[in-house]
């Protein structure tokens, strides 16, 4: 940890960690600076140029995301010149954007849309050629609409820096610069969807949740992933009693990162194969019965076996996929209710 230092932001003296960037320091002190390309979990980039600020003693505006704080620094997060530059940048981005918010999945949850709103950009001084890309369908997970890409590079960086894969890179030059796999063909992807989670616009989204509901339609429930033992925190996006999407927050044990199972593997929650009724084997076939019948059958049968052969003729296998509470109750039932220590689970499998 670096020493704490004093800086001034918009006239206010604040005490911050000396190892931070100006952007981090401003955020942590409650100042808002717009940005499209920054994420605290990635290395500073300085690509979108929206976080330009004025710093006393430096003649040009500098990007807050790449500038480390120094003791005594005096920062101005907003002034006429900076707002003019930011406005121009947003306007330039919008001049090369489909601007189809009416039908975009990300409406209401889109940084570019917010910026356009903030700067009131209905007209555009720069209308001109727009990038046009054919839709391509390279995978079952990630939907790409590269016309909406603002080249913030978050997807590229998370793939390389965090995931250690580097499946995509910015290719081509100038206006035609585009994020794509090598030769736009050789996709060496783990489908973790980290890129999707960071995309600030509608350029990357999940095929599974596309068209199923926008930000305002969903209720978000935080829970824990049902797969491996990492214990990643999931945020379930629920609409009409259906989980339509899974995401994760940065301030969690998994830092917001997920794997393909965690991020995309939720469809089983509404699988048509889910058991919907108790079944009892009758004449060799499993048939639907009521809960009353099933519970009565099980308890009586267990009771009679216990009576006839003793409690140790009964065993229980619990589940590593059930909750602590359920596991506790299960072994308590086997131990106290049945009277045997024949209880185990699949820790060994």
């Amino acid at each position: 940890m670096a020493d704490r230092i004093n800086i001034t932001i918009d006239g206010e003296k604040v005490n911050v960690d000396g190892g931070l960037t100006v952007l981090q320091a401003a955020r942590r002190s409650g100042f808002h600076i717009p940005t499209l390309c920054d994420d605290d979990r990635l290395k500073p980039y300085g690509g979108c140029r929206l976080c330009l600020v004025s710093i006393e003693g430096i003649p040009r505006p500098v990007t807050a995301c790449t500038t480390p704080v120094t003791d005594g620094m005096v920062v101005e997060t907003s002034n006429d010149h900076i707002e003019r530059l930011r406005r121009t940048i947003v306007e330039l981005l919008l001049s090369d954007h489909p601007n189809d918010c009416m039908t975009c999945d990300r409406a209401g949850d889109c940084t570019l849309q917010e910026l356009a709103y903030f700067y009131g950009l209905r007209d555009n001084r720069f209308w001109g050629e727009r990038r046009r890309y054919e839709d391509d369908d390279l995978n079952p997970f990630i939907k790409r609409d590269m016309e909406k890409c603002v080249l913030c590079g978050k997807c590229v960086r998370v793939c390389r820096e965090v995931q250690g894969v580097g499946a995509i890179e910015i290719s081509y030059r100038g206006f035609g610069a585009k994020v794509c796999p090598p030769y736009e063909r050789d996709l060496n992807c783990e489908f973790c969807g980290q890129c999707v989670s960071l995309c600030p616009t509608g350029a990357l989204s999940g095929k599974q949740w596309s068209g199923k509901g926008r930000e305002k339609d969903v209720k978000k429930i935080k829970t824990v992933c049902p797969y491996c033992g990492c214990g990643c925190n999931l945020t379930l996006h629920v609409s009409r009693n259906e989980v339509i999407r899974v995401s994760s927050e940065p301030d969690t044990i998994n830092e917001g990162w997920l794997c393909p199972k965690g991020r995309f593997g939720y469809e089983f929650i509404k699988s048509p194969d889910l058991l919907k009724s108790p079944l009892i084997r009758k004449n060799g076939k499993l048939e639907e019965v009521t809960w009353d019948e099933a519970l009565k059958f099980v308890s009586e049968k267990l009771g009679s076996i216990k009576e006839k052969y003793g409690p140790d003729a009964i065993g229980g296998l619990s589940s590593a996929r059930c909750t602590n509470e359920e596991n506790y109750l299960f072994q308590k039932f086997i131990r106290a209710g049945i009277g045997t220590n024949n209880v185990d689970h699949c820790a060994r499998l």
Binding site: V298, K301, L302, I305, K308, Y309, A313, I314, G315, G316, L317, S318, S319, A320, R321, C322, E326, F330, I334, H345, C346
Partner: peptide
């Protein structure tokens, strides 16, 4: 004689 399996 009897096994009760939960989620395995």
């Amino acid at each position: 004689k009897a096994v009760y399996i939960m989620g395995e």
